[in-house]
Design a protein around this nucleic acid. Structure first.
Length: 598
RNA sequence: CGGGAUGUAGCACAGCUUGGCUAGUGCGCCUGGUUUGGGACCAGGAGGUCGCAGGUUCAAAUCCUGCCAUCCCGACCA
């Protein structure tokens, strides 16, 4: 089919839109693929529509290939099912809620677990019906506090979500594996180089969970990747390896020392290094390798937070981490879920006079101590390691305090920040921290939704069994942006052939009335007859420079130029992906382009 | 939700400090002409509630107050 630029509904912009920061947003707007229509909402223009539809089609084909069946729910959903699972309230301010004329509550679906579960419950009742895999490609709504980066994070977006229904855990595992394999194929076809990372299943309450991330500086997710082995994990899911215990038999006895004016770790370290009577011993410092001087890694920092539990109660939690590391809020929240983390406020200190802000030490921490504060240690605080930490009185610290000898805790919690070059938990090599765009998420939901919504089937013995579910998502509109993030250069977009809106862009670059127009038309007709989608720049009165710039900006994988070479019987063929330019005799061009597009 | 910035034509921006005559520039768009291999040129033209509301003033794009929106950083994000 021939699409003529003279009539195509598109307008390219010479300047970058001021609001766009990330490359995909900038280029998709500038090249006339999308237009902003609302905060976090974009209009798809014809070229953008074609990319979106091709992405959808790839997703659809791979889902169908594993035997999943497509359905389609309304986006406007009733409140009741979401009340039953608690998500009407649990989803918080991110849920778009609205009312009809009678004041009845509705929501715009942020994800459809409830509806799928009820649909299967509605129609199926026997183990013979299982497994069944259903999916939809749907517009989802989330009232994001801060939509940003164009398509990468909108309040309205297209997502493929599918759900598997199985009788038992083995079945769920098979469903999960099938989806995981389909996702690998989908992202390969989309031209996205994804990494699969372990993820936290969070409040959804499942067991296995993995995210498909497209590595990219504009991404919002942080993950680690081992430089040597194949370990990859979302930062929330990172578990540091076992740290060997330390022999503390040679460590001097713990003693309290005067440390006036040491409100921060750094001032404390400086003071210690000025004191000749306080020498570092081999068991001091678990993390830092420098033998002589004290460092922040020798100190034990005790961080206090309040946990807010689902029943509304609040309990304090103390976390001991090496002083050179912060507690990572995201990791902490993932670790204590479903409880939520609140700051330990002044009122919380006031009601516990035993806590001396800035000088908190293990002496007063622990469930069995009078204050009854649960005390968990970072895994780096191993048995036998000695620490400098607060002595629970202003201006005093204790040195050579040995874990296991001088203090104990209630357990271990791995929520300290993860750093670039931290050791890999499986092989010990260095971890690298990278950013990525979350493109897909697969996880084993388990029976949570089936249980509360009453999805049961009769097993072969005639007994009611609660169905176990999996949930699998692909960000479809986000994929368009992620592909653009990955496939562009200084000049513009460079679509992979699998999703490009057109196969080839034919440019007429001659003078009106010369042979270039007919040559281009003839080529376009031939390519079209072969089944290719041809974008033909047949605009009048547009200079060649503009045509070249537009062709590069619009990003079709192949550009053919009918220009001054036509007089010599050649056309110029540019491979936008490979970056090559070749001149070919006119009668060979069609075959070349068709072969390259296959 | 906290911090910062911005809001003037389809796009990018100037003008605001120090209020004043018809609100400007470039790109894009329309008409005519000249051009035609890297975002052409000449001439003429269309297009604006200066984010919204209120206030101060003889007079407000400009000063004041409130609101709204957008972008960036952070918090949040199945």
């Amino acid at each position: 089919m021939i699409h003529r630029l003279s009539t195509l509904f598109v307008r390219t912009l010479r300047d970058d839109p001021a609001e766009a920061e990330v490359p995909s947003h900038r280029l998709l707007v500038r090249a006339g693929y999308i237009r902003r229509a609302a905060p976090g909402g974009y209009t798809w223009l014809p070229l953008g529509m074609r990319v979106l539809q091709r992405v959808e089609q790839i997703v659809r084909e791979e889902m169908n290939a594993i035997g999943a069946q497509e359905v389609h729910f309304p986006a406007l959903l009733p409140r009741e099912p979401y009340d039953a699972t608690g998500r009407w309230t649990d989803y918080g301010p991110n849920l778009f809620r609205l009312q009809d004329r009678r004041g009845v509550d509705y929501l715009l679906g942020p994800t459809h677990e409830e509806m799928f579960t009820l649909l299967v419950k509605d129609l199926y009742g026997s183990y013979k019906d299982l497994p069944v895999w259903l999916y939809q490609i749907q517009t989802k709504y989330r009232d994001e506090a801060r939509p940003r980066a164009g398509l990468l994070r909108g309040r309205e977006f297209v997502m493929k979500d599918s759900y598997s229904f199985d009788l038992d855990d083995d079945g769920l595992q098979r469903s999960y594996d099938a989806h995981r394999a389909a996702y690998v194929k989908i992202f390969a076809r989309l031209g996205l180089d994804v990494v699969i990372v372990k993820a936290m299943s969070g409040a959804m309450g499942g067991s296995a969970s993995e995210e498909f991330l497209s590595p990219c500086a504009s991404g919002e997710d942080t993950f680690v990747r081992c430089s040597a082995c194949d370990y990859r994990a979302n930062t929330e899911a990172v578990r540091i390896g076992t740290v060997p215990a330390i022999d503390a038999s040679g460590t001097p006895a713990a003693r309290v020392v005067d440390t006036p004016n040491t409100p921060t770790i750094q001032t404390l370290v400086d003071l210690l290094n000025g004191r000749d009577d306080l020498r570092r011993t081999p068991s001091d410092a678990s993390a830092s390798g420098n033998a002589g001087a004290w460092s922040a890694a020798d100190t034990l920092k005790n961080v206090l937070v309040m946990l807010r539990h689902p029943d509304g109660s609040r309990t304090p939690l103390a976390i001991g981490v090496p002083g050179d590391r912060e507690v990572d809020t995201k990791r902490l929240e993932a670790a204590v879920s479903p409880a939520e983390v609140d700051a330990f406020g002044d009122a919380d200190f006031a009601s516990r006079p035993g806590l001396v802000k800035g000088y908190i030490g293990p002496d007063v921490l622990g469930e069995k101590k009078p204050l009854g504060i649960r005390y968990l240690l970072d895994p780096r605080v191993v048995a036998g390691s000695a620490w400098v930490t607060g002595a629970n009185e202003p201006g005093h610290h204790v040195v050579h305090l040995v874990h296991g000898r001088d203090f104990t805790a209630d357990g271990v919690i791995d929520v300290a920040e993860v750093r670039d070059t931290d050791p890999c938990p499986t092989c010990g090599s260095h971890l690298r921290i990278e950013r990525g765009i979350e493109m897909g998420h697969v996880f084993q939901l388990g029976r949570k939704y089936a249980e509360v919504l009453g999805l049961q089937v009769l097993d072969e013995k005639g007994k009611q069994r609660v169905v176990t579910m999996g949930s699998y998502g692909v960000g479809v509109s986000r994929a368009v942006a992620a592909i653009a993030e990955l496939h562009h250069d200084q000049l513009g977009l460079r679509w992979p052939r699998s999703v490009a809106p057109m196969d080839v862009h034919v440019v007429i670059a001659g003078k009106p009335g010369d042979d270039t127009g007919p040559a281009a038309e003839a080529l376009a007709a031939e390519l079209s007859k072969a089944g290719l989608h041809v974008l033909l720049d047949d605009r009048d009165g547009v200079s060649p420079g503009v045509r070249f710039k537009d062709a590069e900006l619009l990003g079709m994988p192949m550009i053919v130029i009918a220009g001054r070479g036509v007089a010599k019987g050649v056309l110029e063929v540019r491979d936008r992906i490979a970056g090559t330019t070749t001149e070919l005799p006119i009668d060979q061009v069609a075959a070349h382009v068709i072969a390259a597009s296959a």
